[in-house]
Design a protein around this nucleic acid. Structure first.
Length: 451
DNA sequence: CGGCTTTGACCTGCGC
DNA sequence: GCGCAGGTCAAAGCCG
């Protein structure tokens, strides 16, 4: 009879920890916990809360012992607190590991998809009649991987579909990884869509060209949504926006605001800004269209990235490969079922390939990759074919992790995110921050100010 | 006074 | 065809 009561207490405490700040208590009580271990108890409390129930049992002796009350009363409290701390710690660790696992999986699948696409394209160029045998003739882990990592005029997108949907903590949409390792600022008009199979040359990234790409699908426009943590009402992206509407979206108590680019007359770019229903600090900006005017440096980075992503999305969805599908995911943040959408996630704070100890919040994003969220559908056929190419993908992964350009890209993106002022959107003077010592910073990295 | 935000009305696409 | 929801328009008000 005692046991259920104790377990109930523990459960309640565990629930409470969701809303409390664990940092306040950890150091203070950890000493008690070490003391318990030193006294010969089975102090392996980090295994599970179930262990905690056995501890609490001794505490119930207080009910029958009146003497030494003040001393004995503190014991169960301390143990409870210790268990709480352990719960918090284990939960955090579990969450962190899960996040790392997710990101690793995403990166893995993304690289597979990248590789397949590039190899298919190369194969198509070299020997168009053998497209179907694309993977077989490419030496594993050699030229394909490294050539792919070389800075080239073409863009490099890493794409994956995330099939994980059972985790409530995760975003509703799956992830695409976007990375850019070119060294120069490529104006959006010069972007090349590497995934459109019929596209052999630079594709203008104006909205009209996007429409051309999907001319068989009228009214279909690609969108790129950007997620970032920010307390500011809007993500600063270097452009000037005018609000022209606001709506309450279904399923989200936060209104969705509609903005139009006002940097030039007739600029077709629009953007929607909405906060996440679950996490009010999460700001989601969805961009549509391409600017028809020169952009300040601060805006150029994002514009080129979103433009390329949008073009990729459209061409990928209409090409014969078709590994990019519309994004019909019913997210509360971006219910954009009618439009193919890619989401750039700037909320990831943990480098999947580098375990960071409880770092200072400002230091966490220093290892933050750019994540693109894409469609949650099942892996495309090409991707399934590539599932056997694990060794090659590992090589590519290693190339990425050791590529200084990639690291510089991350540093540039993070610096721009951390260093930008919240209202830098209107201030074109505040361009993307440049990390010293990385002259080839790809400015296609985002330049959001996330407060 | 010009530019911006707010907000209700209207339009359009989509699912049933 | 109807209802719903997303998206846009435009008048009114606010602000520097």
């Amino acid at each position: 009879m005692d046991r259920p009561v104790q377990e109930t207490m523990l459960l309640c405490l565990a629930d409470d920890t969701e809303s409390t700040n664990p940092i306040k208590e950890v150091d203070f009580f950890s000493q008690n916990r070490r003391q318990d271990v030193a006294e010969g108890r089975q102090g392996d409390a980090e295994d599970s809360p179930a262990h905690g129930a056995t501890y609490v049992h001794t505490g119930l002796d207080l009910l029958t012992v009146n003497s030494q009350a003040s001393k004995e009363e503190k014991k169960p409290k301390n143990k409870l607190t210790t268990l709480r701390i352990e719960l918090i710690r284990v939960r955090d660790e579990n969450r962190r590991l899960r996040s790392m696992m997710d990101q690793l999986t995403q990166s893995y699948t993304a690289l597979q998809c990248q590789l397949l696409q590039v190899m298919r394209q190369r194969e198509h160029e070299i020997c168009p009649t053998q497209v179907g045998k694309m993977c077989v003739s490419v030496p594993e882990g050699e030229s394909s991987a490294h050539q792919f990592m070389q800075p080239q005029p073409t863009r490099m997108w890493s794409i994956n579909g995330n099939s994980k949907d059972d985790d409530d903590d995760r975003e509703h949409s799956s992830s695409l990884n976007i990375s850019s390792n070119d060294h120069s600022i490529i104006p959006s008009a010069e972007r090349v869509d590497v995934f459109s199979e019929g596209n052999n040359g630079p594709m203008p990234m104006q909205e009209s060209s996007c429409a051309d790409t999907s001319s068989d699908l009228p009214r279909r426009r690609a969108r790129v949504s950007v997620r970032a943590r920010s307390n500011a009402p809007m993500i600063g992206d270097g452009c000037q926006w005018r609000k022209y509407g606001q709506k309450m979206a279904k399923g989200n108590p936060c209104p969705r605001a509609y903005y139009r680019c006002t940097m030039a007359v007739g600029c077709p770019v629009r953007k929607q800004v909405q906060r996440c229903a679950e996490d009010k600090t999460l700001l989601v900006a969805t961009y549509e269209g391409n600017h028809n005017h020169p952009l300040p440096p601060a805006a150029k980075a994002l514009a080129s990235t979103t433009s390329a992503a949008a073009a990729m999305l459209l061409s990928g969805s209409t090409g014969s490969g078709g590994f990019l599908h519309p994004f019909p995911h019913a997210s509360t943040m971006a219910p954009l079922s009618a439009f193919p959408t890619i989401a750039l996630d700037l909320t990831q704070s943990v480098n999947p390939l580098q375990q960071l100890p409880q770092a200072h919040p400002a230091a966490v994003p220093l290892a933050m990759p750019l994540f693109m969220h894409g469609h949650p559908q099942k892996p495309p056929q090409a991707l399934q074919l590539g599932l056997q190419r694990g060794a090659m993908v590992d090589t590519v992964t290693a190339a990425i992790t050791t590529d200084p350009n990639f690291a510089a890209a991350l540093a540039a993106a993070v610096t721009s995110i951390v260093g930008s002022a919240p209202r830098s959107a209107a201030g074109a003077s505040s361009g993307p921050h440049v990390v010293p010592g990385s002259p080839q910073l790809p400015k296609s990295c985002t330049t959001f100010s996330t407060n």
